[in-house]
């Protein structure tokens, strides 16, 4: 801060200056960083265009190839179904985890421990090879009792089902912790007020606790869906025809690896962008009560 001497104070007309905008100080360091970044971007863009290896015409030719689009549909199906299993399972596990019964909470804890503690890739392979352990599935009396109906495992658990089970059951374990954090974020008084009115424990969860937990739950779930979209690509190991698998099938024949991997990546980017848009809409919906008073009245 500069202190003006009385003499200077006489000389400088601060009042007259007040009409002009203040000059901002130049920041040479920031300028240098900007220049470097622009240079790097220009180089990257140049390479993308000039390097023949990217082979953009091939990318263009395969972007809307029916096999790629069919694979895309499988990727979307896997993501949606696995995520639904994940969220429903996660909610169930979170509620179990918070039970007073040590057995119930312990079982949920064990499940979470196991599915978070082993690689998803291994879990997927396990489901893919499930027939080796359980050649038949069906309904019957457990502990060696008679079976009422049973099927050949390989017929019931198709590769697609194996992929969905693998992804969904794993996702449930991760989502459980997200949901639990959300449920714990709702003050205890909300539950008490609801129970005091006569709502059952389940109705309290449904009408009072879960809607308010959503605000906390949705951002990490959005994050999970984004991750899930790309994680589904792991199913190539059990031969499910998702977008990456089909791209691999194409380049196995025409040897255009890079362009086809770009095709797959473009679609992943499109999907994750859409998920991001959906997430911000959902977040707004569950934060209705946070809208400031003035904005509400202005509408």
């Amino acid at each position: 801060m500069t202190t003006l001497s009385p003499a200077e104070h006489e000389r400088i007309d601060l009042v007259a200056m007040s009409g002009k905008p203040v000059l901002r100080r130049r920041r040479p360091g920031q300028l240098a960083v900007v220049a470097l970044l622009l240079l790097a971007l220009a180089w990257a863009l140049g390479t993308l265009i000039t390097n023949e290896g990217f082979d953009w015409p091939v990318v263009g030719r395969y972007l809307f190839d029916t096999r790629i689009l069919a694979g895309l549909l499988v990727t979307i199906q896997l993501t949606v179904i696995a995520e639904v299993i994940g969220v429903v399972g996660g909610l169930l596990l979170a509620v179990m985890r918070m039970s007073d019964s040590r057995v119930i909470s312990g079982v949920a804890g064990g499940y979470i421990w196991f599915f978070r503690g082993t690689p998803l890739l291994v879990q997927l392979l396990f489901w893919g090879f499930a027939a080796a352990i359980f050649p038949e599935v069906g309904f019957g009396v457990p502990f060696g009792g008679p079976m009422f109906v049973s099927w050949d495992t390989n017929q019931v658990i198709s590769l697609m089902t194996a992929a969905i089970l693998g992804l969904g059951l794993n996702e449930a374990a991760y989502t459980a912790e997200v949901v639990r954090a959300g449920l714990l974020s709702v003050p205890k008084g909300q539950t008490e007020a609801s129970r005091a009115m006569g709502f059952s424990g389940l109705a309290t969860l449904r009408h009072v606790v879960v809607p308010q937990a959503m605000k906390v739950i949705i951002p990490p779930i959005g994050n999970n869906v984004n991750a899930m979209l790309k994680t589904t690509s792991l199913v190539v190991v059990i031969g499910v025809g998702d977008v990456l698998y089909n791209a691999q099938q194409i380049y196995a024949k025409n040897l255009e690896q890079i362009p086809l991997l770009i095709v797959a990546s473009i679609w992943y980017l499109v999907l994750t962008t859409l998920v991001g848009l959906g997430q911000s809409r959902l977040e707004r919906r569950f934060s209705r009560d946070a809208v400031p008073l003035t904005v509400r009245e202005g509408r």
């Binding site: 003050p187 008084g189 909300q190 008490e192 007020a193 609801s194 005091a196 009115m197 009072v208 809607p211 308010q212 569950f286 209705r288 009560d289």
Partner: peptide, 12 residues
């Protein structure tokens, strides 16, 4: 029942 901390449902 009426509580010290009101406990109105925040999302309603």
């Amino acid at each position: 029942m009426v509580f010290q901390s009101f406990n109105l449902f925040g999302h309603m």
